[in-house]
């Protein structure tokens, strides 16, 4: 079991390190923006589509307003998360 843990740790590290280090390796293209948008969508909207999506959308709206009002990423995240928690209590 410890061998499996070490294999996962080493493999994950190499997946992160080698493409980054390679001088003539993988070109990123638009993979950065593509992955950020993809990470957002899969983290905010869990399957299957449900009323939870509306709750998430409202909390994202709160996050956006928080970001516009404060200009602070961390504070906006805090506000959005708080709103999401409150909406779950309704």
């Amino acid at each position: 079991m410890t061998l499996a843990l070490l294999l996962l740790a080493l493999g994950t590290f190499l997946l992160r390190f080698l493409p980054w280090r390679a001088e003539k390796g993988l070109r990123a293209g638009q993979a950065g923006p593509a992955l950020v948008v993809a990470l957002f969508l899969v983290s905010a909207f869990g399957p299957p589509p449900s009323s939870e999506w509306l709750r998430a959308l409202l909390a994202l709206l709160g996050t956006y307003i928080g970001a516009r009002l404060t200009g602070n990423l961390g504070l906006a995240v805090f506000l959005g998360a708080g709103l999401y928690g409150l909406l779950g209590l309704l």
């Binding site: 957002f40 905010a44 998430a56 996050t63 990423l73 995240v77 998360a81 928690g85 779950g88 209590l89």
Partner: peptide, 17 residues
């Protein structure tokens, strides 16, 4: 509400990014 609120921190962060 605390656990659920904290679970939304990462989606909110990804959204802004």
């Amino acid at each position: 509400g605390l656990g659920e609120a904290l679970s939304f921190a990462l989606p909110a962060l990804f959204f802004l990014l």
